[in-house]
Design a protein around this nucleic acid. Structure first.
Lengths: 156, 156
DNA sequence: CAAAGATAGGTGTATATACTCTCATTTATG
DNA sequence: CATAAATGAGAGTATATACACCTATCTTTG
């Protein structure tokens, strides 16, 4: 009688390795990313803004006018991803882009409606952020931020 | 002469808040998720497996046979997302699903080709994982994992 | 200054993610 | 036992993400 998959030494080895993979740095960060994104998205729900869009508007507020490539670098995000994300913001009237002096570039700015939308979402974000920092405790939260920056620096 | 956007008290306040938003737990985790996903995807490139697919195969190895909802819960992932992710794995012949005794459920299993693909990617994953743990140092890496689990627990 | 190289950006394609709605099946209830 | 409530899963839609490839513009170099 042949061994079933679950009984082979091969499977036993694979299963042991697979359990080890549960400490994957990437897997754990991706899981946390899913959970936190849902948590913040829910908190911002009534503003009709997603947390990813909130982050973009915050960056535009600080850095406008800025080119797509420059903004992508600040967000450590692929340039073409940012192009698509910004398309949504532009369709909603929260951001716009005009050609720069260098005709190859597009200078991004936030619109008055974008400012208003960002301002509307700020207290909702603050509430969510407070829940997370209180849940972890200030010390562990600071530690998490530091470690995340370190892991980004170590793999960029 | 009217004030430009950048000169209004309103803008100054928004800019100050936007800078504060750079400590957003969600934003920092999402950024780390992008960076780590690219890093691990690049490491797994020659196996033609993405890190997300590697995680799914690892989970199937451990838990098969398992229903979609049960697996989604283990991954802290939306059920409908998992349905779509698994569709890709099934098209590539690495996983399959059959109806369970309860005719509403679909029982997921990994195929021999799925085992082979997972096994092929293991050394590539190990190398990437070692680079991250060495880059951070064992102590900080352990600390990061603990904090990520805490933040997931605090917001789930 | 014209041609080669470099740079900024967009498009095609594929995958990942989740919410809402719908359908099929199962379980609970009268 | 028939109907209502609950449950498991898929489809429609929208957004996020990035790689490979392409085009337009600018800069460098002969």
């Amino acid at each position: 009688m042949p061994l079933s998959n679950k009984e082979t030494p091969e499977h036993a080895w694979l299963e042991r390795v697979a359990k080890g993979a549960q400490v994957c740095a990437c897997g754990n960060v991706r899981r946390a990313s899913r959970v936190l994104t849902q948590f913040y998205d829910e908190a911002l729900r009534e503003s009709n803004l997603r947390i990813s869009q909130f982050h973009l508007l915050a960056r535009l507020t600080i850095h406008e006018p800025i080119t797509i490539s420059q903004l992508a670098e600040k967000l450590v995000m692929d340039r073409t991803t940012l192009t698509r994300d910004l398309k949504v913001l532009q369709e909603k009237g929260w951001a716009k882009s005009v050609a720069g002096v260098d005709q190859r570039t597009r200078l991004l700015t936030i619109t008055p409606q974008g400012y208003a939308k960002f301002k509307e979402a700020v207290p909702l974000w603050e509430k969510a952020q407070a829940q997370v920092t209180n849940g972890l405790g200030s010390e562990r939260f600071q530690s998490l931020l530091v470690h995340l920056k370190e892991v980004v620096a170590a793999t960029t």
